[in-house]
Design a protein around this nucleic acid. Structure first.
Lengths: 153, 153
DNA sequence: CTCCTTGCAAATTGTTTGCATACCT
DNA sequence: AGGTATGCAAACAATTTGCAAGGAG
């Protein structure tokens, strides 16, 4: 099952770098994997991990998320609500949701997911012309959702 | 000259809403217009406005930026360095720099500007399929810059 | 004259850090 | 054993807010 693979991958990467395999690290990644549809804050993750492992500290969650991000096992996104959000890394997601973006309504602050793969060509172009190796991207559109558009009148 | 138009536009919008035209508001917008190439933090703007108007407070700068953003006179961007950055709104910029994006190096944290207009089609598609009216966007690519790629080996 | 706006300082909030202890390997 | 990782609490930094005084219309 997926779970096992992700966990093994983390263990492997940790060992490669001489870092330690701890319950906390495994649990944080596991929670992200089990909530792959959500955009979770550090606090969200802290609360969920706490259910299984109440002695964990919030600082550890932050440190772990940083570590997992460095290793490209989690993705980071910023939805402009004052806190950074995390989700399982796109490299680990089986499905083709690499290219999922967000529409953010300026009026009601709703966040609408949106899928599209228009960026692949652009990434290739960047690699060639700038020599920058693209690992990930974040694309947000700001505007007015259908409901708020109606109310404008 | 450009300066005059932008200032007049702001005055007009303020009056429409029954808000007041103040030195502080005019100065904040003016500083952003005169530094249209930079990505400025609230603190940056505060320091520059202070040169002409030393009694201004930082809180006023924050309040003004929020107001100008609501009116679509300034753009906001987040370069993941812990603070929001501002620049003169793309609607006010004469040049075709609407579509300028950023490449962020995960290793040295350098930010490389990058221009491209691949998003216009996508925006039209979003309007039609989702009914979301796009006003602006933010696109960032994360990866490794040329220099850091070399050092990887 | 009225209400909007400001400056100041205090409050908030997400995130980071120092340090002694606990835990992998 | 030896260094890495953790939990806790204190420290930080960007941003927001309350309030009395000032200023635009």
């Amino acid at each position: 099952m997926e779970q096992k693979n992700t966990e093994e991958l983390l263990k492997e990467r940790l060992r490669e770098k001489g870092l330690k395999v701890t319950h906390q690290r495994l649990l944080v990644l596991s929670v992200l994997e089990q909530n792959s549809g959500r955009h979770m804050t550090a606090e969200d993750i802290y609360e969920l991990v706490s259910e299984d492992y109440p002695e964990i500290g919030l600082a550890t969650v932050y440190r772990t998320l940083q570590l997992l991000w460095d290793m490209q096992l989690v993705d980071r996104l910023n939805l402009d609500d004052g806190c950074v959000r995390y989700e399982i890394g796109h490299l680990l997601r089986g499905d083709a949701r690499h290219n999922h973006h967000h529409l953010i309504c300026r009026s009601c602050h709703k966040v609408i997911p949106f899928d599209g793969d228009l960026l692949d060509d652009l990434e290739r172009h960047i690699e060639e012309s700038v020599g920058f190796h693209v690992l990930d991207h974040e694309l947000k559109f700001y505007g007015l959702c259908r409901e708020c558009m109606k109310m404008q009148k």
